[in-house]
Simulated scan of single mutants.
Amino acid sequence: MEFLESNWGTILGLLVNIGVLKYILISLKEKFDDYQAKAEARDDATKSLCRTEIISICHKAQREGHIAYYNLENLTLLYKSYKALGGNGAAEKMYNKTINLPQIEEE
Rank of each mutant, 00 (worst) to 15 (best):
residue 43 D to M: 04
residue 80 K to M: 04
residue 72 L to N: 08
residue 96 N to C: 06
residue 86 G to N: 05
residue 76 T to C: 01
residue 68 A to M: 06
residue 85 L to W: 09
residue 57 I to A: 10
residue 35 Y to P: 03
residue 32 F to P: 02
residue 65 G to Y: 00
residue 84 A to Y: 10
residue 7 N to R: 04
residue 49 L to S: 10
residue 44 D to W: 06
residue 94 M to Q: 08
residue 51 R to E: 15
residue 1 M to Q: 12
residue 7 N to K: 06
residue 16 V to A: 12
residue 61 A to H: 09
residue 15 L to P: 03
residue 39 A to Y: 05
residue 92 E to A: 13
residue 103 Q to W: 05
residue 60 K to P: 00
residue 103 Q to H: 10
residue 79 Y to M: 07
residue 38 K to C: 01
residue 59 H to L: 15
residue 79 Y to F: 15
residue 57 I to H: 08
residue 49 L to W: 11
residue 84 A to S: 14
residue 53 E to I: 11
residue 85 L to N: 04
residue 67 I to E: 05
residue 11 I to L: 09
residue 35 Y to F: 15
residue 62 Q to Y: 05
residue 63 R to P: 01
residue 53 E to H: 13
residue 101 L to E: 01
residue 91 A to M: 01
residue 15 L to H: 04
residue 77 L to H: 05
residue 78 L to F: 14
residue 41 A to Y: 02
residue 16 V to P: 02
residue 37 A to P: 00
residue 12 L to C: 03
residue 16 V to T: 12
residue 104 I to N: 01
residue 34 D to I: 05
residue 46 T to W: 06
residue 103 Q to Y: 04
residue 40 E to V: 12
residue 43 D to V: 07
residue 73 E to L: 10
residue 51 R to Q: 14
residue 82 Y to S: 04
residue 11 I to V: 11
residue 53 E to M: 13
residue 20 V to T: 07
residue 5 E to D: 12
residue 42 R to C: 01
residue 37 A to E: 09
residue 67 I to H: 07
residue 23 Y to D: 08
residue 14 L to M: 05
residue 77 L to S: 04
residue 36 Q to F: 07
residue 66 H to D: 06
residue 73 E to R: 10
residue 97 K to C: 05
residue 91 A to I: 07
residue 105 E to L: 15
residue 22 K to Q: 03
residue 1 M to T: 05
residue 53 E to P: 02
residue 103 Q to S: 07
residue 78 L to D: 03
residue 81 S to P: 00
residue 33 D to S: 13
residue 30 E to L: 12
residue 53 E to L: 12
residue 84 A to W: 07
residue 62 Q to S: 06
residue 46 T to H: 04
residue 29 K to I: 10
residue 48 S to F: 11
residue 64 E to Y: 09
residue 31 K to I: 12
residue 14 L to V: 05
residue 37 A to W: 01
residue 61 A to P: 08
residue 20 V to Y: 13
residue 57 I to C: 05
residue 19 G to T: 13
residue 47 K to T: 04
residue 57 I to Y: 06
residue 45 A to M: 13
residue 32 F to Q: 15
residue 49 L to Y: 11
residue 46 T to M: 06
residue 27 S to V: 08
residue 17 N to Y: 12
residue 32 F to A: 15
residue 80 K to G: 02
residue 7 N to A: 01
residue 23 Y to M: 15
residue 21 L to T: 15
residue 35 Y to M: 10
residue 5 E to S: 06
residue 71 N to H: 13
residue 66 H to A: 11
residue 78 L to T: 10
residue 70 Y to P: 02
residue 30 E to N: 13
residue 56 S to A: 15
residue 88 N to S: 14
residue 51 R to I: 09
residue 40 E to H: 08
residue 31 K to D: 11
residue 9 G to N: 00
residue 46 T to F: 08
residue 20 V to D: 05
residue 2 E to G: 04
residue 17 N to V: 13
residue 98 T to R: 07
